[in-house]
Amino acid sequence: MVEDLSEDAAVSDAVQRGAYVFRAAGCHSCHTDTKGGGAPLAGGRALKTPFGTFYSPNITPHPVYGIGAWSDEDFEAALRHGVSPDGDPYYPSFPYTSYTGMSDEDIADLQAYLFAQEPVETQNKPHDLDFPYSLRFTLGLWKTMFFEAGAYQEDDQKDAAWNRGAYLTRHLGHCGECHSPRGFLGAVDDSLELAGNPEGPDGGKVPNLTPAENGLAGWSESDIAGALKIGITPEGDFLGDSMGEVIEHGTSHLSDDDLTAIAIYLKSLPANSGP
């Protein structure tokens, strides 16, 4: 990176745009150990899954413990291809399977934003996984079975709002990572995408986001936007737990247009009553 970052107007624009991408991509919740009082983005948050417990890594620009020594290519390879700078595949607990659809510009802006944050000297904690998921070498095979890299391609049969909604929901916001059921190999079943997950992270049930009766059938577009903005449901309940964090650090900061786009996209899905 160039030395005079602060002088460069184009870079600071990228940082500003990146701040928004960062919100929409929901990086904060998983990469911050809020419960344990960890520093922002310094990792260490436990993600309990049926495959074992994952600990998120430090994504501050610390050169040794964070991503400070990463090149632009390293950063893109991580998000687009799920590959670490050492060439190792990531576990899909890191939602590169969704982020792969990010635009080149969003990836670059997100990197600019992260590199503008305070470096934190916190060492990464190794994952604590059950056999056979603990065998990292099997991930290469997993990827050939379940993963295809590539930026989101707009559907020209649909309007701009729908396409924006699809991009935000399926890629940047990676909603399906929690809101879809996974098979025993940990991959999302495409036919049940966004249809809810009875075995979500931390042992919870994750609701169905398709317009099925057990999903969002009774929700209007403005109900969905309202839930993402302030957490309210049509029953007058307020979402909490992990979705509360997503709202607090992520979706409540998005523009009304983007929240409506997500709602338009979700309401356009075929109703699917899920697993």
């Binding site: 979500g200 049930k205 957490g231 307020f238 909490g240 737990d241 992990s242 607090e248």
Partner: peptide, 14 residues
């Protein structure tokens, strides 16, 4: 009033 508390102190539906 509602969401802040639910985020920290209320678990997921099981």
């Amino acid at each position: 009033g509602c969401g802040g508390c639910h985020t920290t102190y209320r678990g997921p539906e099981t």
